[in-house]
Design a protein around this nucleic acid. Structure first.
Length: 441
RNA sequence: GGAGCGGUGGCCGAGUGGUUGAAGGCACCAGACUUGAAAUCUGGCGUACUCGCAAGGGUAUCGAGGGUUCGAAUCCCUCCCGCUCCUCCA
């Protein structure tokens, strides 16, 4: 949620910042509604005050006086009730409008309308020069009997996959490796719920605007009315960030650093036809996520550290990658600054996103009402709560890491070398080879 | 699915329709006492909105919404959530 107070104080600055991301259509209307509400609230509160004062007198009034005051009170009560109804309506309208606006980009985010405006920050590790033609992960995976996409389509439709044998184990190994990496750095591991309420998704910004990207789930068979559906999480950022929804944390506790492994579910409504081959874009995938709660002053440092963490993971897996600073047009709705990490894919001879690390500033914190109480300089006075900063970053997308590992470490004969650091998680094998002892898939 | 109970401030917990933003306790903060600490005593201590340069004032808030009433934490209705027992289940 955008900061309504800041908007009212300096609407022009707000419009300028938002215009960098494109549309600012309803900003004026939001401002108008906000001011209308204030005016209404003034009248309402004056009326409530009068009512309360009159009522005070009723307590010790004689029966005759009470009888006399009754009419007046009844009328005043009705008027108050009417204004309260107006207030509810106008606040609903204000909130509905306010929830539509994306976060404002920070000044150090480059302008641009799509991914072409992104700025490469650095490259890490040189892609290997192959003396043979690179196979893609589907050819490699099918060749080694690690994956079966056709049969998954039979079971669940497009954009699903079975991982098989060492392929399944590799996925598990990667996730485990990543989590241990984060734990060694001091993160707290979480295993979150995968189904969440609509309110939770409003907190992180997926709703109300982006419901079509989500899967929703009913209690029991589909029905027309009844209990509100739950949603499958598109990332564990959603449940973890909302973990402290509605709470006030003491400043001394910040920053808080969590990591979480989870399945992620995305409807991919807007991406029909994109990345249809292979495991790059699935309805269901695994991801290890980093989530941070920080003071606004700590946020920038935390962001850089997450990027470094993700990069270190890729380096540990010997995967060439680059860090990219996203431009205003390519950032997510809730983000005010985002770095993507892109891993080298030999089959496509290009870098593809494998992690996205963002600071959302106080945008999500205002939606989910997560605040912190600054440590007071004067021990006699306590500071007022402020929204804290939330950050999240992939560390890493496990499915895409699986893809990148196969492709980058493939050998001429179609087998795949396992990087040193991962071997303890795979029974100490150094290579994925075709298992000739088993029959055809 | 069947039966019952309950949702009050950071926590515990009282609350007869009006004097309750809400007793009391714990926790926390400041001060006093003490060489220091503990104990004790005194005071402070929710959140949001709103008016005001400020000091300070006002309004709302006892799970949510609606109703009865001049007046609701207290009475009525609906919903949500939690707990216990039985049933079922990984």
């Amino acid at each position: 949620m955008i900061d309504l107070k800041a908007l009212e104080q300096d609407p022009d600055a707000f419009a300028r910042a938002l215009r960098r991301r494109g549309d600012v259509a309803n900003l004026d209307e939001l401002l108008r509604v906000a001011r209308e509400r204030k005016e209404l609230l003034g009248r309402l509160q004056a009326m409530q005050e009068e009512r309360n004062k009159l009522n005070e007198g009723m307590k010790k009034a004689t029966p005759a006086e009470r009888e006399a005051g009754r009419d007046r009170m009844r009328k005043l009560g009705d008027e108050v009730k009417a204004l309260e109804a107006e207030q509810r309506i106008i606040e609903e309208r204000r909130d509905a409008l306010a929830l539509q606006f994306p976060n404002s980009p920070r000044p150090d985010v480059p302008d641009g309308k799509d991914e072409h405006g992104n700025v490469e920050v650095r490259r890490v590790l040189e892609p290997r020069k192959l003396d043979f033609t690179a196979r893609d992960h589907v050819d490699l995976g099918v060749g080694l009997d690690l994956v079966d996409i056709e049969r998954a389509a039979k079971i669940s439709g497009a954009r699903f996959a079975f991982l098989k044998g060492q392929g399944a184990r590799l996925e598990r190994a990667l996730a485990s490796f990543m989590l241990d990496f984060h734990l060694a750095a001091g993160d707290v591991e979480m295993a979150p719920p995968l189904l969440v309420t609509g309110q939770t998704l409003v907190g992180t910004g997926q709703l109300p605007k982006f419901g079509e990207d989500l899967f929703s789930v009913n209690f029991g068979p589909p029905k027309e009315a009844g209990a509100a559906p739950l949603y499958l999480i598109p990332t564990s950022e959603v449940p973890i960030t909302n973990y402290y929804a509605g709470e006030i944390l003491d400043e001394e506790r910040l920053p808080l650093r969590f990591c979480a492994f989870s399945q992620c579910f995305r409807a991919e409504a807007g991406s029909a036809g994109r990345d249809t081959r292979g495991l790059i874009r699935q309805h269901q995938f695994e991801k290890v996520e980093m989530v941070r709660f920080a003071t606004p002053e700590q946020a920038n440092d935390e962001l850089e550290r997450m990027v470094q963490r993700a990069s270190d993971l890729l380096t540990a897996l010997e995967l060439p990658h680059r860090v990219v600073l996203l431009c205003t047009g390519d950032m997510g709705f809730a983000s005010e600054k985002t770095y993507d990490l892109e891993v080298w894919l030999p089959s496509q001879a290009t870098y593809r996103e494998i992690s996205s690390c963002s600071t959302c500033g106080s945008f999500q914190a205002r939606r989910a009402q997560i605040r912190y109480r600054p440590t007071s300089a004067d021990p006699k006075k306590q500071e007022k709560p402020r929204p804290l900063a939330t950050l999240n970053g992939s560390g890493l997308a496990v499915g895409r890491t699986w893809v990148a590992l196969l492709e980058n470490h493939q050998l001429a004969d179609g087998s795949v070398r396992i990087p040193e650091r991962l071997r303890p998680y795979l029974g100490a094998i150094d290579t994925l080879r075709k298992d000739e002892s088993r029959g055809a898939p």
